[in-house]
Design a protein around this nucleic acid. Structure first.
Lengths: 226, 226
DNA sequence: TTCATAGTTCGATCATAATCGAAGCATTAT
DNA sequence: ATAATGCTTCGATTATGATCGAACTATGAA
């Protein structure tokens, strides 16, 4: 028997301490690797792997392969909402716990990821475009909307030269520091080039750091608001 | 070890199929007895009792003794919200299930419970007063607010004659058919008497049924809106 | 190529807790 | 008083699944 009725399956998933720790660690919106999640949960990598596969088949989390890393993140806002609601209930007669802090200074703020902008400002670029409906996420793809085309053109980027590439113009990219989605693809490259052309930013010698001028950063923040 | 972090405890509680069935059965807002919940969950009474005590110590459900029955209900709206959110998630890749229907015609609608109004209309009276902040629930007590005093007086009930009784003026009462809280106490009695006086309703001979006239019911529904 | 890192899969162990029979307690009915 | 109903507590059994060691796969680096 043991007919698993609706919410019991999900409850059981959340009910294991190791998995609960992993899920709360993912509540930040960051994507984490299996090793990191294992550390968060206080279990070995094998155990973590088992848990993660269960969470993924239940569609609570989402896997993105990048190189030899596997980045896990919550599969959607609704999952986060449920976890938050549960934390609210738990707060009635339980405790919460703190998270660990970040590290690394300038690289976290803005850096090159292959050939596009990553780091906090890269994430901001992506989030801002998404908020103003200039891009749309469709499953794994990222699409430029009509309004987005207008905006991009007005920003001084020639889309026609981008379009002829066979690869998708927009891609979302995930990288360490911020562990959030940011703008990649040919459009991501074009944006970064445009920032160089406008004199907003320039690369720092041998480093991956992208250095924004004070004025450039101000313009950037004004252009890509949240 | 096995440090139980926040949400895991609640998740584990919801994660057991028997408990999940009980909780979903309570989602209707009705209060159910241990036997009924055992039936819902498909387990014996002993097993159900064990589950119910766990749910109660975790404050997810609330117990009210009434006679030799024990009525369990969700402890609050927040618990219901979490369960609904979980059902939403489960709907992504699961199924839902139907509930059983009611029975009994006129008794369900309006009847006397000791000496006050019960049934659907009794529940409506209570809910309406609560919605318009004429009464307030404080832990196990039900209090008449200042606005409530004004309203009750304007409805033709003399509160001063009620106040001198040592027993609380308002009490919430739980009864079979609707299994929802309704208005009891001396105020509950006064309301029913007033309905009789206004000619809205009258008792039916040997039965517990309270029969509202068409006009009386219309007035009732207009006075006590939701 | 070889080595290292990141992760999965398999298998065995072990602990938790769900379950129910039996007995106990409390409240109402007769 | 005695019986019956409603429910809880105790104890033993059993099953589920969390855990990790060891071996295997894949990607990237030297």
């Amino acid at each position: 028997m043991k007919e698993g009725p609706d919410i019991a399956l999900i409850g059981a998933l959340i009910g294991d301490p190791a998995r609960a720790n992993m899920l709360t660690a993912l509540m930040s919106g960051k994507a984490l690797t299996a090793s990191e999640l294992a550390g968060e949960a206080g279990v070995t990598l094998q155990t973590a792997s088992s848990h993660l596969s269960k969470l993924e088949t239940a569609r609570l989390i989402r896997l993105r392969k990048q190189g030899r890393h596997r980045y896990f993140s919550l599969s959607g806002d609704d999952v986060g909402s449920v976890l938050e609601a549960l934390m609210g209930l738990a707060a009635k007669y339980g405790h919460t716990r703190a998270r660990t802090g970040p590290k690394d200074p300038a690289l976290r703020k803005a850096r090159v990821c292959y050939n596009h902008l990553a780091g906090e400002l890269g994430v901001r670029l992506y989030d801002s475009l998404k908020k103003h409906r200039h891009i749309r996420e469709k499953d794994d793809e990222v699409l430029l909307t009509d309004a987005g085309s207008v905006f991009v053109r007005s920003f001084g980027i020639d889309i026609t030269t981008l379009g002829h590439a066979r690869r998708p113009m927009c891609r979302s990219c995930l990288d360490w520091s911020a562990r959030r989605t940011h703008m990649a693809g040919s459009l991501g490259i074009a944006f970064l080039d445009r920032f160089y052309d406008l004199g907003w930013a320039k690369r720092v010698d041998g480093s991956r750091v992208v250095s924004f001028s004070p004025q450039g950063e101000e313009n950037f923040l004004k252009t890509f608001q949240l």
